[in-house]
Structures are given as C-alpha cells and as structure tokens.
C-alpha cells in the first residue's frame, strides 16, 4: 500500500550562507503507513517543530524529499502549498490557534468554507465531527468562553472536518491539564482506530507518546531509535518509552 508520509534525507539549515548557520535537521528518514498513529519524540530544541513545519509545507527543507499521499510537497509553489494544507492535512497546535471572533461552530466549518464546499454539505459535516468529539452543546460559544480542553477539542474537530489525509499535532496536550490531555488523547486514538485517520504527533511528553502505535526518537536533529507498541498495553508501552528515554538520552 502507498505510504502516507515518506521522508527522505531531509536536512534543514537555518541562517543564510555567510551568516551564522545552525543545522536543525540532518539526514532524517522515516515513513508513515495509512491509518498509523505515529509519535515523534524528543527534547525541547531537538527539531520537532522544524520537522513538522516541513511536513506541513510551512517551511521548506534545505535538501531532501517529502512525499505526502504520493505527492512531492517540496516541489509545490506557494498557492499549491496553501491548497495542499487546506485539503490534505489537519493541524492541532499547542496553543489551539482558534479564531476568537468566530464561534466554535464557525471555527470548525472554516476549512470547508475555505474549500468552497457547498453550504448544504457543511452543516452535516460539522455536526457529525462535533458529535464524535462531544462538542454539540458548545457549538455556539466563542473560544474565550471555553476551557482549554474544550478549545483543543474544537481545534481537533477543525483538523478533522475535511477528512484530511493526515492530522499533524504539535504538542497538542502541551497547554492542557492532565485530565483534559487524557480526554483529548483518548478521542484521537478512538478516531484513529474507528475512522482509520493517520496521525503524526510531535511531543516531548512520554504519556502522550504512549498513545501512539510507533515512536520515532529525535535528538539534535537526527533520528535515533524507533519503538513499536505492537500488542503491549499502554501502561507497558509507557514504561518502555521511559526506559528507552533513559538510554537514548545518554
């Protein structure tokens, strides 16, 4: 089967030639299968956000190739990049990134409106994803009237409403209390299982990582070991992650 994400020999150097340069990623290679829930784990400053920005066309690699859904996204022009983000991927950010002058409903509907979806089709799509994420009661609220956990679920609904090929999350639980974090992760893993949505989660938090099927460790811009959950329970997997963090950090 075709891979959802294929990253080949990615390198990212910040700073122009002649100026002070910093290599944030070097020779990164990995793949994501359809329906997989993959975690990329590393300490702060290890290059996770840089990698995610490249995968989502917000930034371009200095060299290397990225295929998403079979398409080489490093060859797109800026308009194609925007359309790619609008159609193919969903985003969940650490700081929610909701538009606070739109209601929850309007925030969720935004990606569909951007694609100029027929307005008759928007409502059913918004309602169905809201139901899945338990948001039906708060759809008419503005983001400032919501808790952090609710906001992040609205953001998740917005990331999912247009059936993207893959959902990217950059530390989506980073700003949440542990209970809300757990609820969000439960929902994401449910959607991953039931609807076969591919998810790529970037995190430095072992607990979040324990929800993934597979974890790719990154350190100083380089990919290290990989850890598969297989048929272990989440508790066991969490312990394994902690163990390998100990060795990987050496």
């Amino acid at each position: 089967m075709q891979k959802i994400v294929e990253v080949k020999n990615i390198e990212k150097i910040y700073g122009k030639a002649g100026e002070k340069q910093y290599k944030a990623l070097s020779d990164v290679n990995f793949e994501v299968e359809p329906g997989e829930f993959v975690g990329i784990m590393g300490a702060s400053g290890s290059g996770k956000t840089t990698l995610l920005n490249i995968l989502s066309t917000l930034d371009t690699p200095t060299s290397g190739q990225v295929h998403i859904g079979g398409q080489d996204i490093t060859k797109l022009n800026t308009n194609e990049m925007a359309d790619f983000r609008a159609n193919k991927i969903g985003f969940i950010f650490q700081d929610f990134n909701l538009l606070e002058n739109l209601t929850a409903y309007e925030n969720i509907a935004l990606p569909l409106a951007l694609q100029n979806t027929d307005s008759k089709k928007i409502d059913p799509a918004v309602m169905s994803i809201s139901k899945k994420l338990g948001l039906t009661d708060i759809l008419n609220h503005y983001p400032t009237e919501l808790s952090g956990g609710q906001k992040q679920r609205v953001a998740a609904a917005r990331a999912l409403v247009h059936d993207p090929a893959i959902v990217f999350g950059d530390e989506p639980t980073g700003a949440l209390d542990s209970k809300s974090a757990r609820a969000l992760l439960d929902t994401m893993s449910k959607i991953n299982h039931e609807d076969n949505v591919s998810i790529l989660l970037v995190t430095h938090d072992p607990f979040s990582a324990s929800y993934c099927d597979r974890i790719i460790f990154i350190k100083d811009g380089e990919i290290g070991q990989e850890l598969k959950r297989d048929d272990h329970t989440r508790g066991e997997f969490y312990q394994e992650i902690l163990d390998s963090l100990g060795t990987f950090a050496e």
Partner: peptide, 16 residues
Amino acid sequence: VKRYNMLYKIGTRTKV
C-alpha cells in the same frame, strides 16, 4: 497577526 498567521497555516492562499 495571529489570526492571519493561523489562517495561513490551515491553508488559506495569501491572495485570499
């Protein structure tokens, strides 16, 4: 700034 940055991130063309 934040609003437009977010719209950009979720795939709104700069022209739009």
